[in-house]
């Protein structure tokens, strides 16, 4: 039993979006959707500061896998659950598709996997298509890759070492050291959601 989490180092994110490409290929997220696609992980381009101290930064986001997950508490059927390793997952067979979890998530981490997305998934991936029913979709920390001893696809592909994944309960892990020293902090602490994704800004 672990307590998986991720640290995003905004200082070293290059904005190459290889994480988005890797995730969308592995998890077959609707990159084809209108208005820029639907993604489990995104890179938002920011301009921070005021002239002449202006900085262009790339801000990676993902499901925060909250310990006090609003999405899980509003789910009427129990489709959203937390597994033994602290990963917030969705049982697609139980997902009603009401969108209540999308409205309850304060991190914009969820989207609808609609009928037309299923058709496109089959069109692009053929027999390897992984989505067979409409549901709400989100990051799973690539739980299937973890079971095979691999890192999540976004972490494995990150060239700037901007994504550090590991067990928060293992004091010797790189992620635990970053979190325990206070160098990495969660987003929106005031929300009391207790995210397991932390940021170095």
């Amino acid at each position: 039993m672990a307590r998986y989490g991720m640290v995003m180092n905004v200082k070293t994110c290059l904005g190459c979006k290889a994480c988005m490409a890797a995730c969308s290929q592995w998890n077959q997220t609707p990159f084809w959707a209108e208005d820029g696609g639907k993604w489990r992980t995104r890179i938002t381009e920011l301009e921070d500061g005021e002239f002449p101290e202006v900085q262009r930064r790339f801000f990676p986001t993902i499901c925060m896998h909250c310990e006090n997950a609003g999405c899980q508490s509003v789910c009427p059927t129990g489709a959203t659950y937390t597994n033994k390793d602290g990963i917030v997952l969705i049982d697609y067979d139980l997902c009603l598709g009401c969108g209540y979890c999308i409205e309850a998530c304060p991190y914009d981490a969820r989207y609808e996997y609609e009928k037309e997305d299923l058709e496109k998934d089959e069109f692009y991936f053929g027999e390897d298509a992984r989505h067979h029913q409409v549901h709400i979709d989100k990051c799973t920390f690539c739980v299937d890759r973890l079971e095979e001893g691999q890192e999540p696809s976004c972490v494995a592909t990150c060239v700037g070492h901007a994504r550090i994944f590991g067990d928060l309960d293992d004091p010797n892990s790189e992620i635990a050291k970053l979190v325990n020293t206070g160098e990495a902090k969660p987003l929106g602490e005031y929300l009391a959601t207790k995210p397991k994704v932390y940021y170095i800004k």
Binding site: S73, P76, L94, L96, G99
Partner: peptide, 27 residues
């Protein structure tokens, strides 16, 4: 009709989330 797939509405009777979900309690 607002569900992604209206034909999945029967799942609404599976009110496992009743401890905290207002859709389940509402049902």
């Amino acid at each position: 009709l607002d569900l992604i797939d209206p034909f999945r509405f029967l799942l609404a009777f599976w009110i496992k989330g009743i401890g905290s979900s207002w859709i389940a309690r509402g049902m």
